[in-house]
């Protein structure tokens, strides 16, 4: 059987700020309906890679293909259109602070669908209910807790029923229970909406809970040093660094 076109294909991607190279020649693919985790030590360029994948940072070299269609090789307009298929959750939620939660989630619906304000409000209520924030429509981001802000950010990310969800450190800064709930929510959303999920994370518990596939970026090598399902990588990764990372620094008895 011929391999199906991957939903996302990162090809020879080099990320750099000026002459400072962050990651070199990244090459991996994400299959449809997969939860793909980008992991690595602090400062290795996980978030930078995500920014290149969602169109916020032009890579120094290489391209990202969505369903085989070039993302960086096309016009800005096409890229904007592709962008609408994505839902993005930023690290700190990035909710617009002068808008209520309902307005935050409703803005993309208002802008990109022909729905009436009443219909937008109904969809907003649904999305907030999905992330467990029923009844919080009229709250401002500053009036709710950090975990709720994350979930509200997720509600905004799924407002337009995206094919691809990008989540930057979704469970960072949450207590274990809330973090676990968010993981369940991500899996549930993936299963029910048939979305592909790309997660930037370094929370081990979360990585093992949700990942189908992953790539490990190394800050020193400035390259990807492991691919695959993290549950298998714990034992099979060639690099000791990856194994150590996934075992939380526990020393290996025998190599």
């Amino acid at each position: 059987m011929a391999e199906a076109t991957p939903r996302i294909a990162v090809r020879n991607l080099t990320l750099a700020f000026g002459t400072f190279v962050v990651q070199r020649d990244l090459d991996f693919a994400v299959a449809p309906d997969e939860v793909f985790v980008i992991m690595g030590d602090s400062g290795c360029g996980k978030s930078t890679l995500m920014r290149a994948m969602i169109g916020l940072l032009r890579p120094a070299k290489g391209d990202v293909l969505y369903d085989g269609q070039s993302f960086w090789g096309t016009s800005d307009e096409t890229r904007m259109r592709l962008n609408r298929r994505f839902g993005t959750l930023f690290q700190s939620g990035a909710l617009w602070s002068s808008m209520t939660l309902a307005e935050n989630v409703g803005l993309p619906l208002q802008q990109f669908t022909g729905l009436s304000p009443k219909q937008v409000a109904e969809i907003v209520t649904l999305k907030l209910a999905l992330v467990g924030l029923r009844g919080f429509e009229d709250y401002y981001p500053s009036e709710i807790s950090g975990g709720m802000r994350k979930r509200a950010g997720l509600a905004r990310a799924i407002a337009l029923d995206p094919d691809i969800l990008f989540l930057d450190e979704p469970s960072a800064g949450l207590d274990p229970l809330n973090s676990r709930r968010l993981d369940d929510l991500i899996l549930e959303l993936r299963d029910s909406m048939n979305a592909t999920v790309v997660v930037v994370s370094h929370e081990l518990a979360s990585i093992f809970a949700i990942a189908d596939n992953s790539v490990f970026l190394c800050a020193e090598a400035k390259a990807a040093i492991a691919h695959g399902n993290p549950r298998e990588l714990v034992e099979t990764a060639e690099s000791a660094k990856v194994r150590e990372f996934l075992k939380r620094g526990a020393t290996e008895v025998a190599a």
Binding site: A129, G135, S192, M193, N194
Partner: peptide, 15 residues
Amino acid sequence: GARRLVEMALAVPER
């Protein structure tokens, strides 16, 4: 999928 989404939306009662 739709059934699960409905269940999820109803899972957390309004505080």
